[in-house]
Design a binder for these strands. Structure first.
Length: 889
RNA sequence: GGGCGGUUAGCUCAGUUGGUCAGAGCACCUCGUUUACACCGAGGGGGUCGGGGGUUCGAGCCCCUCACCGCCCACCA
């Protein structure tokens, strides 16, 4: 342990934080004890494992902070707490990133081959995994690193195989042909979720198809025109469809048109899918390249002809256009149609085009055979869990989003034609039988015909990354085995993640968790918002407006970043991280530091036994601490992290620093104070500080831990002999002291009134002025009497004359009046400025009085609860009294 | 085309079940070198809570409607 340093006036977060993290790590505090503490409730928080594709951004910092707050809180509560960290292998994203790196090295997937490519990927993973781990630690993540997991580790691989086999056995996965989303650049299938719709202005071309004469040749006189945004796909046309009730085309149904360039005969069919009002009312049918057409083709028994290859070039089916890229082909076809006189129209057209979420390339619907999860049965259970309250979504309004998606869910294409990921554990035998196995080495023989393993070939597709991510809450704990961790830490208490991945991840975890384990994978889904750049725009690397959390930490410290990200937010709502917010948070850590510097520095030496009874300041702050503790506990239990941060900030800054410490100074410096009393007052300061540190530790763990270290030396009895705050107990709320609260309220009112009066009257701020106080009644007088000792220092007044109620003889024009007392300062005449202020104050009072009089004259007085009416009456009386004083009767 | 969220002081945002809720921080104005902190202290100015209706004794908070802003979902060629 480093030597105790002199506390500097500035808190040097960046220098201190790493040392503290090492202390935590060495203490083993992050890892749950081998045996769960007796009687402890389990608390398990789940995090979205970051993609191992690079370093963390400030959005990751947000989830680390929120999860760490809950983890630290529950650990202090004595719960059997686990926060299991890890990373996700992110197949498509990882390959996208690695491909770019390889390109710089003059290599590519093909030049390396599968094995060397994967080798290179593992090296890349090892590097980034370390970076992510270090960043999380720097943020203060008190996660259990002994259980650090990776979605590509053997434990996860086994869970993936098992889950797939069980789904297969249950008939919930199938292999089949379908039109899938294909990214020609990533060269893989992607799910509907990975396809992002982009509004674009394209072109709507109208193309004339000549009708076939009986001999099969095009009729130059007769034609039918179709509208399309994708002329290149006409090469795959197999029919032309019109609406059955469309009189314009009634006579044509059953006849045939001739496909330009290829001469294919296209039956003209009738189908209600056609909107007669759009375009020409006649639609070209291209089953292999359009989802609607695919369905239409199936209904009419039409062939599906693929004309594009995996890189979206025209294939051999395209005749003379073969080999051309889809956009080149489009231009050529349009040109030639125009030359032939068969391009009837060409106009700009607003449309939505699907792009690859990863690389931005326009997605191509592509006919292929692959593996799918039959989602409906799974979704029904996942819906019931939320509907019936076994899993709760916070904030609540996301329940609707979740429900809507689940109710309209479509089968999930889980195969990916990539290399990096879990290979689908299905084997094919030469006779076409499929064997699914959960054994790592694969099946011994074909499950259907018994052909030996040597004759079987494994599926080359890998799983969609989200399939393995979807098993996260239990694949990380040893499932499918019935491990101690499974029994102890499953299901998860709070699943904390961003709302942007509820479908990708949360929904899949719900479905797979329920299927695999039979229970909901988590009790609560807490969704946070996105962190946006200053100005409200989304952060993105291409825009260059990302915030590097480590840079921020080096500037203001991890605590400040954590506090800034936590406070002033609403669950599920986006937030902007501004410099002002970070500075405010940094100032707060500095404030704490200095408060501690004062308390620790004020320790009487020697510190004798305490003597005497607590002062008003001591009793009041104890009462306030009790209230703050109660509130913080409730807020954290209800996952209101922002409100928690705000309320403790308020308690620390206002109650403890601005009021209590200032009053404690008065008590400590009283000339007649005994050593025993001084010791008692100081111990109150220290123990309140200890309580404050405990309450604050979850959100600003470093600075509180550092101060705690000082406290354990200076006042061991306030820290339970616990050298590390991270292991200290969350405080139990003490009792309130109603009498102290009431006295303090009176005193604060008087002090604020006098301070206000000083400024309002234009009296010098630094001057000691005589004060006259006339209490409103005997009770107020007693309260003021009890707090009288604090008045001189806090209001900078002396001497003080405390009169009997009603005795306001010699009252000058400028006074401060409140419900509890009237007071005035001597030693100065009211300035001109004071006069104008008085005028505005008078108007203000007048307005308030009129409003209250109107209120009390109406139905309010008879219909509202009596206590409310009373309260308003009292307010009116007070305002009237103040006005009388102001205008001098 | 549906659905959701937002619109509160100059800025960034809090406002739990309708009744001191009109708030915080920053910014602004005045004052302050009292031995924790100027990354500070004291005081102050500033908002008809997007517009318009309605329910209620009483509405940022509930209902209707309109206007912007943002997001999500969606197969119209």
């Amino acid at each position: 342990m480093e030597e105790r340093r002199e506390m500097a006036p500035r808190y040097a977060a960046a220098a201190i934080e790493p040392l503290i993290y090492d202390r935590w790590l060495a203490s083993g505090a992050f890892t749950p004890s081998v045996e769960p503490p007796t009687g402890a409730e389990p608390f398990v928080i789940a995090m979205p494992p970051p993609n191992v594709t690079g370093s963390l951004h400030v959005g990751h910092a947000l989830f680390v902070t929120l999860e760490d707050i809950l983890t630290r809180y529950h650990r202090m509560r004595g719960d059997d707490t686990l926060w299991l960290p890890g990373v996700d292998h992110a197949s498509i994203a990882a390959q996208f990133v690695l491909d770019k790196i390889l390109a710089e090295e003059g290599e590519n997937r093909a030049s390396l081959g599968r094995d060397r490519y994967l080798e290179r990927m593992w090296r890349f993973m090892d590097e980034t995994r370390d970076v992510i781990g270090l960043q999380m630690r720097r943020l203060g993540a008190s996660a259990d690193w002994t259980r650090n997991r990776f979605t590509m580790d053997p434990m996860s691989a086994r869970a993936v195989r098992t889950a797939f086999k069980r789904l297969h056995d249950a008939g919930l996965v199938y292999r089949g042909e379908a039109l899938v989303n294909w990214c020609p650049r990533c060269r893989t299938t992607i799910s509907d979720l990975e396809k992002v719709p982009v509004e674009e202005t394209g072109t709507l071309w109208t193309i004339r198809y000549h009708l076939a004469r009986p001999d099969g040749t095009p009729d130059p006189e007769q034609s039918i025109s179709v509208a399309t945004t994708r002329p290149e796909t006409i090469l795959g046309d197999v029919a032309v469809a019109v609406h059955p009730d469309d009189d314009r085309y009634r006579g044509l149904v059953g006849r045939e048109a001739i496909l330009p360039f290829l001469g294919r005969r296209l039956p003209i069919i009738a189908d209600a899918v056609v909107d007669p009002k759009f375009g020409t009312g006649a639609v070209k049918i291209t089953p292999a390249h359009d989802p609607d057409d695919y369905e239409t083709g199936r209904r009419h028994g039409l062939a599906a002809i693929s004309v594009l290859d995996e890189e979206a070039r025209i294939n051999a089916e395209g005749g003379a256009f073969a080999g051309l890229d889809r956009y080149e082909a489009r231009a050529r076809i349009v040109d030639e149609l125009r030359a032939m006189g068969d391009l009837e129209d060409e106009r700009p057209h607003q449309m939505v085009v699907g792009h690859c979420d990863r690389c931005g390339t326009v997605i191509e619907p592509r006919l292929s055979v692959g593996w799918f999860v039959r989602t409906q049965p799974l979704a029904e259970r996942a819906l019931a869990s939320v509907r019936e309250g076994r899993t709760r979504i916070v904030p609540d309004h996301f329940t609707k989003v979740y429900t809507h998606w689940m109710e309209n869910i479509r089968d999930w294409a889980i195969g990916r034609q990539l290399w990096w990921g879990h290979r689908i554990p299905a084997w094919y035998c030469p006779d076409g039988h499929i064997t699914v196995s959960d054994i790592e080495a694969g099946p011994d023989a074909c499950a259907t015909c018994g052909r030996p393993a040597g004759e079987l070939t494994q599926e080359t597709d890998i799983f969609d990354t989200w399939f393995s991510s979807g098993l996260w809450p239990f694949s990380t704990l040893g499932w499918p085995d019935d491990t101690p961790d499974m029994r102890r830490f499953y299901p998860t208490s709070v699943m904390e993640t961003g709302y942007d991945i509820v479908f990708f991840w949360v929904a899949r975890m719900m479905m797979l968790g329920l299927f695999c384990t039979g229970v909901e994978p988590f009790h609560t889904i807490y969704l946070h918002g996105l962190v946006r750049a200053d100005g409200g725009v989304k952060m993105s690397k291409t825009k260059g407006n990302t915030t590097d959390p480590i840079e921020v930490i080096e500037e203001v410290g991890a605590d400040a970043l954590r506090f800034a990200l936590t406070s002033g937010t609403t669950p599920g709502a986006d937030q902007r991280l501004t410099l002002a917010k970070l500075e405010r948070a940094r100032n707060f850590t500095n404030k704490l530091w200095n408060a501690a510097r004062f308390v620790l520095g004020a320790r009487p030496d020697p510190l004798v036994a305490s003597d005497g009874s607590p002062t008003l300041a001591e009793r009041w702050i104890a009462s306030r601490l009790a209230e703050a503790t109660e509130r913080a506990t409730k807020q954290l239990d209800e996952l209101e992290m922002s409100a928690y941060a705000g309320s403790i900030h308020e308690f620390a800054w206002s109650d403890y620093c601005d009021w209590f410490l200032e009053m404690a100074k008065v008590d400590l410096r009283r000339p007649d104070v005994t050593d025993g009393e001084r010791a008692r007052i100081w111990r109150s300061s220290a123990s309140t500080l200890a309580g404050l540190l405990r309450l604050l530790h979850p959100v600003v763990p470093y600075v509180t831990e550092e101060i705690w270290a000082g406290l354990t030396e200076a006042a061991p009895d306030t820290t339970d002999g616990q050298p590390l705050l991270i292991r200290a107990a969350w405080p139990a709320a003490g009792g309130r002291d109603a009498a102290a609260d009431a006295d303090m309220a009176v005193l604060m009112t008087v002090i604020r009134g006098v301070r206000n009066l000083r400024t309002e009257s234009g009296l010098p701020a630094g001057a000691w002025l005589p004060l006259t106080v006339v209490p409103a009644d005997a009770a107020a007088r007693e309260a003021i009497e009890r707090g009288l000792g604090y008045l001189p220092a806090l209001a900078r007044v002396r001497p003080i004359e405390l009169r009997q109620p009603g005795d306001d003889a010699g009252r000058p024009p400028t006074v401060a009046s409140t419900a509890v007392a009237t007071a005035w300062l001597g030693g100065g005449e009211a300035s001109t400025e004071g006069d104008t202020r008085r005028a505005s104050q008078e108007a203000h009072l007048q307005r308030g009085i009129e409003r209250l009089q109107a209120l009390l004259a109406g139905d309010f007085a008879t219909r509202a609860p009596a206590e409310l009416v009373e309260r308003e009456r009292a307010r009116l009386a007070e305002l009237e009294a103040q006005l009388r004083l102001l205008v001098g009767d």
